[in-house]
Amino acid sequence: MKEIIDRLQELYPIGDFKQQNKSLALITVDKDKAVDFITRLKNEEGFLHLSIITAVDWLEKNKFQLSYLINNPTTKNSFVVRVMIDRENAEMFSIHHLWEQAATYQRELKEMFGIDFPGSPGVDKPFILEGWHEIPPYRRDFDTKNYSEETYFPREGRTKNVPAEYMKQKLYPDE
């Protein structure tokens, strides 16, 4: 897998190569070159199968990481192609023309992370959520616990005691 990267290194700025295990390697590619690079891997290097497209929210770095997991069914090897994009007005080029299912992944990413893929069919249609008005829920700054506490109510008859505090209260309240 390193061999492929070494060969393509001249054409594409590929960074952070890591052979994660026997058949999986991680690489990072610039946003502008990513679709071109993935197309190349698909058309020339036999990475025909797209397993997933997903995103990781690096809130503290103000970046989204898009991960394209592509697999070569002949050599059985896979790449995670990582693309870092800005978190503000997050946008990425669509790859729906390469794989049919990509549009579904991109639609979900739009809904769950708020990452736009202009031109991807149905990208603006809600996928899983319905009538959602909060920020995209898979973003790190969406607090699920807070949301559920505001939306639902606790069951009656539940009380909470922390052993150490309870013991202090019982055994040495004044100290």
């Binding site: 539940r158 009380t159 909470k160 005691n161 922390v162 052993p163 150490a164 309870y166 013991m167 019982k170 055994l171």
Partner: peptide, 18 residues
């Protein structure tokens, strides 16, 4: 799971009583 006091069980060294 909640930890709650139970009648007849005393809070003492090594036992929170909960």
């Amino acid at each position: 799971i909640d930890l709650v006091p139970v009648e007849g069980i005393e809070t003492k060294d090594g036992d929170s009583g909960l």
